[in-house]
Simulated scan of single mutants.
Amino acid sequence: MGDLEDISQHVSDKISLVQRMLDLSVIELPQHKVKKLELELFAITKLLEDFEECVNEQKKHLKDLQDIDESYQRSLKTVHHMKGNIPLHIPRKKDLVNGNEATTKQSDAADTQQPQAETVKKTSKTVVKEMEFVTMAEFESIPQYMRGRVSYDQLNAVVKCLNTTVTAKYNILHQSMKTLTNHSRKLQSRFKEQETKDTKGQFFVVDEDIREFTQMKVDKRFQGILNMLRHCQRLRELRGGGLTRYLLL
Rank of each mutant, 00 (worst) to 15 (best):
V97D: 03
T244R: 01
L47R: 00
D67A: 13
L235C: 10
Q233N: 14
M216Q: 08
Q66C: 06
G2Q: 15
R211Q: 05
V205I: 09
L180V: 02
T214L: 00
L65N: 06
K77A: 14
D69W: 01
R245Y: 00
T126R: 14
S12W: 04
K35T: 14
Y72F: 13
H174L: 09
Q154E: 15
V206P: 01
P115E: 01
F139C: 00
T181E: 10
R185D: 02
S189H: 14
H89T: 12
T196S: 13
N100T: 10
T199L: 05
Q215N: 15
L226M: 11
C232S: 08
T119H: 01
K94D: 04
N182H: 13
Q19F: 08
G2A: 15
I44L: 04
S184L: 03
G224S: 02
L238Y: 12
Q9S: 08
L248V: 14
V158W: 00
P115R: 02
A110W: 14
L24C: 13
K200P: 01
F222H: 13
G99C: 04
F222P: 00
F51E: 11
T123M: 00
H174G: 04
L41G: 09
G241P: 05
E49D: 11
Y170W: 02
L39R: 15
E28F: 05
Q175T: 04
Y170H: 03
S176D: 15
V159M: 02
D69E: 14
M21S: 03
F42H: 12
L48A: 06
I90G: 07
Y72N: 11
V150E: 02
R74F: 10
D153T: 13
D209W: 03
H32L: 11
V150G: 01
C161K: 12
L65M: 08
V205G: 02
N156E: 01
D3R: 14
G240H: 11
D23E: 15
M228E: 04
M177L: 09
K14C: 05
N163V: 01
T104D: 12
V159C: 00
T167R: 14
I68M: 14
L65H: 06
F191T: 03
Q194Y: 07
T104N: 12
Q9F: 02
T104S: 14
E118F: 07
E40S: 01
Q233R: 14
L180W: 00
K93V: 09
K46S: 04
V79N: 03
H80I: 07
G148P: 02
K200A: 06
E193H: 10
E118N: 07
A109V: 11
I210K: 02
D207Q: 07
N227G: 08
L24Y: 14
Q31W: 07
Q58C: 02
D153W: 03
S75V: 06
K169W: 03
V79M: 11
Q113C: 09
R190G: 00
I68V: 10
A43D: 14
D108P: 03
L243Y: 15
K160R: 11
Q9M: 06
E38R: 10
Q113V: 12
F133Y: 15
E28D: 06
L162E: 01
M146N: 06
C54A: 07
E53I: 11
H61F: 12
H183A: 10
D3P: 08
Q31Y: 08
F213Y: 10
R221Q: 10
H89D: 08
I90S: 10
D95V: 12
E130S: 15
V26W: 14
K60L: 09
D198N: 08
Q114E: 13
S16C: 08
